[in-house]
Amino acid sequence: MNIFRLAGDMTHLLSILVLLLKIYATKSCSGISRKTQELYAIVFMARYLDLFTDFISVYNTFMKLIFIASSLAIVWCMRFHPVVRRSYDRELDTFRYFFLVGASFALALVWHDKFTLQEVFWAFSIYLEAVAILPQLVLLQRSGNVDNLTGQYVFFLGAYRAFYILNWIYRYMTEPRFTRWIAGISGVVQTALYADFFYYYFISWKNNSKLKLPA
């Protein structure tokens, strides 16, 4: 564990807490893409297949459980909670994410560390996470003004993978033979997808204005 990876994990946890706060405090999920939440639930379930077979540390197991439980709880809220589900922007959240799932799985069948079920699903989860934010970014562009908590949620979600990139650079420099090409390249793509969001987020912070993404 290094400071970059810890910062990444804490930022990721923070993004989830901000999203839970937004849904709980406002009893609303307006501006949140359910499709992105569903993709993240798939990402965590596909990535943590080793949850009960490989014990790495209490921290590792605890965080995996938090990520799986929170993503499923958020999807459940957005689908079945009688109050929250009414504020779902159904007509705006129309990104056809089936292609993202299919393409990620196809790529995982081709490019993986080892051709085993666990490794193919791990690579699938890495590729899928890289594109999972797309429905959310599309929804933000369509829904015009973005409430503060939603903006902070997306910001922290993008920032966590940037910390992981620093972590991979650090490990590459300090650990012999450390390579994480699949996660590294996907992580760069994932963070790059946030580039324009980060730009408009910075502008709104500098001008102290409402966050607005151009349509």
Binding site: R5, H12, D50, N60, W122, N167, E175, F178, T179
Partner: peptide, 10 residues
């Protein structure tokens, strides 16, 4: 090889 591509990250 086995140990260093061990998935220890989240």
């Amino acid at each position: 090889k086995e140990e260093d591509d061990f998935k220890d990250e989240l």
